[in-house]
């Protein structure tokens, strides 16, 4: 079983932004969670099927798809990961739709303040930990009360480890679609 703590996902189509953020987190939070970076939102979504993330931080304006569309799709794959946006477009409309459409946890603006980014990400990571613990507790409680079958518990464990593994993607012709 994969017991590694969930990671942080950074998505921005500007590679230098990603490496600056990764450097910052590596240096400021050396014992912190593992960080994965993607310049392509599509590739990040594909990765989201493979490993669980605690936080996902996305840019808004990206060539492939905008940050809101990306976070929306991401939330369908990993609904529990907290969603953050780091954007230079401090546009009120963007902010409103980000909060309303994808349940944004925090909005950070570019150019960012290093300390602020670190403390926000740390805080969000801790928040994810608390929420995760609550969910485990609820699961345990349901199990004790006999509300969940052993199969369901196993299904959720697998789902947590490999997001989407328990969902089958049926094609219109009855075929099963495999991502890989």
């Amino acid at each position: 079983m994969n017991n590694r703590p969930p990671r942080i996902l950074l998505v921005d189509d500007e590679p230098a932004v990603l490496s600056a953020l990764a450097r910052l987190l590596h240096r400021q939070l050396p014992a912190g969670p593992e960080v994965e970076t993607f310049t392509s939102p599509r590739a990040a979504l594909a990765r989201a099927w493979e490993v669980p993330f605690a936080l996902v931080v996305s840019d808004y304006r990206m060539a492939e798809m905008d940050g809101i569309a990306f976070l929306k799709e991401f939330a369908e794959i990993q609904p529990h990961a907290l969603r953050l946006m780091l954007s230079g477009a401090a546009d009120f409309d963007v902010l409103v739709s980000a909060v309303n459409a994808v349940g944004l946890h925090r909005y950070l603006i570019k150019p960012w303040d290093d300390e602020e980014v670190c403390s926000v990400l740390q805080g969000a990571y801790a928040e994810f930990g608390r929420q995760e613990a609550d969910r485990q507790l609820a699961l345990e409680r349901q199990r004790q009360l006999g509300q969940l079958s052993p199969e369901e518990i196993e299904r959720r464990r697998l789902e947590a480890e490999e997001p989407g593994i328990t969902r089958v993607n049926w094609g219109p012709d009855g075929a099963i679609h495999l991502d890989d």
């Binding site: 230098a16 932004v17 490496s19 600056a20 450097r23 910052l24 240096r27 230079g88 477009a89 150019p111």
Partner: peptide, 25 residues
């Protein structure tokens, strides 16, 4: 201005952050 600001804020963001990290290095 909004477009330019967004374009400029990206490089400004990572240059600023990199300078801080570099200072630490």
């Amino acid at each position: 201005a909004a477009g330019v600001a967004h374009e400029i804020n990206n490089p400004v963001g990572f240059v600023q952050s990199n300078i801080n990290t570099l200072a630490g290095y």
